[in-house]
Amino acid sequence: MARASEQLPGDRSILAAEGVSKRFGALRVLEQVDFAVAAGEAVGIVGPNGAGKTTLLNVLAGAYAASAGTVRFRGANVTSSGAAERCRLGLARSHQVPRPFGGMTVFENTLVAASAGGGLRGATACERALDSLELCGMLRLANRRAESLGLLDRKRLELARALATGPTVLLLDEIGGGLTDAEADELVGAILGLRERGIALVWIEHLVHVLVRVVTRLVCMDAGRIIADGAPEAVMADAAVIDAYLGQGVA
């Protein structure tokens, strides 16, 4: 079985969770999770429903405070920082269910990200917003009210907005979920574009065939723990992963 790699201070990791636990009342959702991402790396996270994937992402992004453990980002301890502060440091995320700013235009959605998260002003912020929309194939929709978008475009907007903050690490939560294969392919094109820019990715996804086209490392979670971590082929062949997630006869 592939083991979670030990992360030591001073290693190459840009984002790390060290011994992170998360409880909601009596419910233990994360148990002593150690997880790290190197600069520019692309990591996929898979696992059955309720494994704690989204909770891990929320703790990494600062949406939830960890019940125990430490989160480090770019060498700093950010455990007590909120989501907004982590975003301004370069840690961006997308949401599983898209959360567009419905009353604003698509362009204004990305402009908020460029100015608040990216710290840019004036024409520079506008340029960043337009660049992000272009990379995600949304330029022609720039003047549309975000509430009028369909699911694929809402997912694209999640991506464009996160990108406009100028992240060094991007956390993606099932951005391919609910899309057809053709639509997911389009999104993969945009996400590969992010990799070329050197942005590290942590990507939760059930569409494993989509995921492995982008990521070079796969992590499998089950019941709040990481049960496998390594090269995608090795993780997919791991007996514990087959048992917990894929089911017999799938691998």
Binding site: A83, A84, C87, G103, V112, A116, G117, A146, R161
Partner: peptide, 13 residues
Amino acid sequence: RDNEEAAASLGVR
């Protein structure tokens, strides 16, 4: 106004 959590996740104070 449109989504407080999403705004925070994009760096809005």
